[in-house]
Amino acid sequence: MGVPVTFTLKLKAVPKVLVDARWVSPDRFADRAIDEIKKFRVLEGGWETTVGELFEVIGPEKAPADPKEIDIVIEGSTSKICYIGYKMSGGRIVIRGDAGHFIGYKMRGGVIMIHGSVRNYLGCKMKDGIIEVFGNAGHRVGSKLQGEKPGKGMKKGSIVIHGNAGSEVGLGMTGGTIVVEKSAGNLVGSSMTGGTIVVKEGAGLYPGLEMLGGRIVIGGVVKGILPSFYVDSYIPLLKVRGMEFKKPFLSFIGDAVVGGRGFLQISYEDNKSLLEFYKSLVEEV
C-alpha cells in the first residue's frame, strides 16, 4: 500500500439548505482525475450542482485506484452537508467542522473523523469501519431507518462520540460498538438485537426498549427503567470492550415484552434509589 494522497475540500460558501453530498467518498474519488471529481453531482436542496461549485478542491491530478489510499479533508463548518462517506469501503475522511445528517450511511470500511458535531443518523446501517466524533451527535446513532425491522441497523464497526448523543442511540443495531463519552438521550438501544452500547455518563428514559439481544452499559444516572426488565446479577467491577468501570453495576435481562435476552447494565451507586429494590431480589447461588 502506498502513501495516502489527500484531497482537501474547502467550502466556498455556507449552504442555506441541506446538501446531498453522497459522491464525497474515497470509493467515488478512486481512479478519477481531479477535473472529474469537480464535476461530481451534488444536490443542494432540490437543485443539481457540482462538487467544484460548492467546494474548492485541492489535490493531485489523479486519484489512486485503491480507495484505501485516499484521504479527504473537508474544511469549513456547516451542519447542512449530508451523506458524506456514503457506502465507503476504505480510506479516511476528516471533517474539520460540523456535519449534517447520515454521515457514514451504509459505510463498509475506512475511517471518518469529525472535529465538530453531527446531526441525526450518524453511521446509520453501517456494515464496518470506524467513526469518531469530537463534538456531539444527534438522534439515532448507528440506527436502522424508520419502519425497518429490528436488526437492520449497524452491523459491525465502531462509533465513538466524545460528547453527548441524542435519543435512540443504536436503534435496531445488530453488532458493533457505540461508545458515548458523555450522556445520551431517551431509549438507548431500543430494538437492538446485538452489539454493545456504552454510555459513560447518564441516559434518559427507558434504555433497551424492545431489545432482543446485545448489551447496554450506562455508567451514570438513568431517568427510568422499563418494568419488563428482570434483574439478573450484581457486578462489583465491570469490564466492557477494554474499558473498566470501577463501580458496582446491576445487570438486567430483557426486554420481556418481546422475549428478548439482552443485557442492560446500570451503575448502582448513581441510581441507588431506583435500583435498591432490584438489588434486594438478587441472591447468591
Binding site: I253, A256, G259
Partner: peptide, 9 residues
C-alpha cells in the same frame, strides 16, 4: 430456563 421471563412462560 435461561431468563425469568421465559421461565414464567
Amino acid at each position: 430456563h435461561q431468563d425469568p421471563a421465559n421461565l414464567k412462560i
